[in-house]
């Protein structure tokens, strides 16, 4: 790397000499290596989920066998339903709350305590998840002790909290992109504030809200640590179920379920990406 004046063979072949100046030796290789590191394990996992072999070591034959077995597994089915229920509730509430908060922080005059509001909204991102998890557990157990009320609501509430900042990000970004003149034009055309919101702000904000909801859903669906500590008996989500199975040993069924969960997240995030693209 010391001999920086000698161009790399690959760089020498570039058609545009100016682009060549941007290159740093070895950087391309590391970048490709980075992509490889990120994707290789996932690809191996996906490949083995289609492997018709219990040992999970050697490739034998392509098969949907483990998917069929996973679908037949009562535990997996139950965990999937719990996961979807929790994610759905957390997504709805966190998206509504995040939308309201984003409107407050972008559509009104700067106010005292704005920084504090930002800090509170982003708080779940700044504290290590394990700390949030144990303090939430401590808090909920205290309330359960005092009121005697149990149920899955606690888990949903905990998910709503950490989903809010994720939903908030794209919604706020969208609002900041949106020019105030649209709303002024509506007010100029006799629309009172509520009508401005309903007829102009909300429809224009919709892509941001959808993106925020998708992120919230994915984040809720993927959570392990907080769920692990907060979830009561019978509230096993899919990741918790998978964790339990992995602890017992590797089974091809888990590969299949993991691939499905992976596929779901990837589908959502890809959709999010494409939505963002169309907007430009």
């Amino acid at each position: 790397m010391a001999d920086t004046t000698a161009p790399l063979p690959a760089a020498a072949k570039r058609r545009r000499p100016m682009a060549d100046l941007k290159k740093q030796p070895g950087f391309n290789q590391i970048a490709w290596g980075c992509i490889f590191i990120l994707y290789a394990p996932i690809i191996v996992l996906i490949a083995f989920s289609f492997n018709d072999n219990r040992s999970v070591v050697l490739w034998t034959e392509f098969s949907f066998r483990w998917y069929v077995e996973a679908f037949g597994n009562e535990g997996i089915r139950k965990a999937t339903i719990v996961s979807l229920e929790v994610a759905a509730v957390a997504t709805v509430f966190s998206t509504i709350f995040a939308t309201m908060a984003a409107l407050a922080t972008t559509r009104t005059q700067p106010f005292k305590g704005q920084t504090l509001a930002y800090a509170i909204i982003n708080q779940p991102l700044m504290i290590p998840e394990i700390v949030t998890a144990v303090s939430t557990l401590a808090f909920f157990s205290l309330i359960k002790q005092l009121t005697g009320v149990n149920g899955i609501g606690y888990l949903m509430l905990a998910h709503t909290v950490f989903c809010i900042p994720f939903a908030y990000m794209p919604i706020r970004a969208r609002l900041e992109d949106m020019n105030l003149t649209m709303e002024q034009a509506a007010a100029d055309l006799y629309a009172p504030p509520l009508q401005v919101f309903r007829r102009v702000t909300l429809p224009l904000l919709m892509p941001g809200i959808v993106a925020g909801a998708m992120l919230a859903f994915v984040v809720s669906l993927d959570d392990v640590i907080i769920t692990l500590l907060v979830a009561g008996p019978g509230e096993t989500t899919l990741p918790i179920y998978i964790l339990g199975q992995i602890r017992r040993g590797i089974t091809p069924e888990i590969n299949a379920v993991s691939t499905l969960l992976l596929g779901l997240s990837i589908a959502f995030v890809t959709l999010f990406f494409l939505l963002g693209r169309r907007r430009k």
Binding site: M182, Q184, D188
Partner: peptide, 20 residues
């Protein structure tokens, strides 16, 4: 008065047409 109570209309510099 707020804008929606004024019998006055504006043509904006970048038109501000509602894209939706």
């Amino acid at each position: 008065l707020p804008p929606y109570k004024r019998p006055v209309n504006t043509v904006f510099q970048n038109y501000a047409l509602f894209p939706h």
